[in-house]
Computed example of a mutant assay.
Amino acid sequence: MSERLNHLLVLPRLRIQNANAISSPMTWGFPAMSAFIGAIQALERNLPDETRLIFEGVGVVCHRIEPQVTEGGVIKSFHLTRNPVDKSGNTAAIVEEGRAHLEITLLIGVGSEGEDLGSFESRQALARQIFDQVQGMRIAGGSVMPAMGEKRYRPELISFDDNEDKRKKQWNRLRRRLLPGFALVLRDDRLRAHTEALKAQDANATALDAWLDLSRLNHECHVTVDENDKQQVEWQVRRPFPGWLVPIPVGYGAISDLYQPGEVANARDPNVPFQFVESLYSIGEWVSPHRLRNPDALMWFVENDLERGVYRLGNDYAQTQFEEE
């Protein structure tokens, strides 16, 4: 995202029931960020004609997540539903679906297309209108539950001041509202750095090796000998980088040519071009909002490269967070 945010729509404490917890073929837990990008695109398309706003990106702060899985033990399994019998009277097959209950705050970058965002009253009216509209949507496959009506969790459309000091005060005030919680940001830089570190040890190492290494906890045995020649064994968890790093899907990469509408049988929409793709992966980090220096650091946006067949999401956390250092 080349330009910094001027307006930010805050939709606080949305309670989502039965959101999709299987974010990709290789990851599970919090929904993929592409699900939230899709949600705000659907929201933008369904805005009334007189509401002339453009949504330019989305940030997500998770306050609570409750995966619907069995408790206890090392291996967990999802709670599955028993579907009704089929038309022949036989038991229908069980399709594994992962679900989770969420409580999140959505932060949407807003651009004005002729909409008056100068007055506080007009901004708050728009925020309340959009917040009410979200209550009837589905986000990440889950249902948005009705708001609890707590006054401290009111929606807000913030217009950031051009003065840098005032802008920082506005952001500091918002950061306190987002606590407790964690924001998911992109750490492509961590993946690149760890890939280079592994290649320095083994020339055959790949980005996949680095991704898998960062996705797990590596327990290493350390043996020390004391002054009496007695060995002491200590197991430690090796972490290449500090922080709460997680594997995440970030989009899709093409594995076929782009077919014209109607060329591929049984396509979901025969009126648009079709292309076979596979998931793209990277590393994300959960960061407490109070550590973010500016709102741009948590915003996700579409970053496609159509010539290469890459459809992925971007986030400028690494650039905006450390550019002053």
Results as ranks from 00 to 15, higher is better:
P295G: 07
A254H: 01
G262M: 04
A92M: 12
Q319N: 11
P273R: 12
F55S: 01
D229I: 00
F120S: 14
S143K: 15
G181Y: 06
L179R: 10
A32S: 11
N172Y: 12
L217F: 10
E325Q: 14
V110P: 00
V185L: 05
F274S: 08
G89F: 07
P25I: 12
I158P: 01
N218Y: 07
S77K: 11
D269G: 04
G243T: 05
Q170D: 08
E96T: 06
S159G: 13
N163S: 15
E56S: 11
G314T: 02
P273H: 13
V250S: 03
W171F: 08
V277A: 06
L102G: 01
K87P: 01
H194Y: 15
E115N: 04
F160G: 02
P155Q: 11
L184M: 09
V237C: 12
W211A: 06
P67S: 02
F160W: 04
L184C: 07
R192C: 13
D132N: 14
P48W: 05
F322M: 08
Q41V: 08
E71N: 14
K76L: 04
G142L: 01
F120N: 12
I40Y: 04
I94L: 08
V237G: 09
G89Q: 06
L9E: 03
S119V: 00
P31C: 06
P240W: 00
H290A: 15
Q231H: 13
A42E: 07
I75P: 03
Q232E: 14
P180V: 11
Y153W: 15
S24N: 08
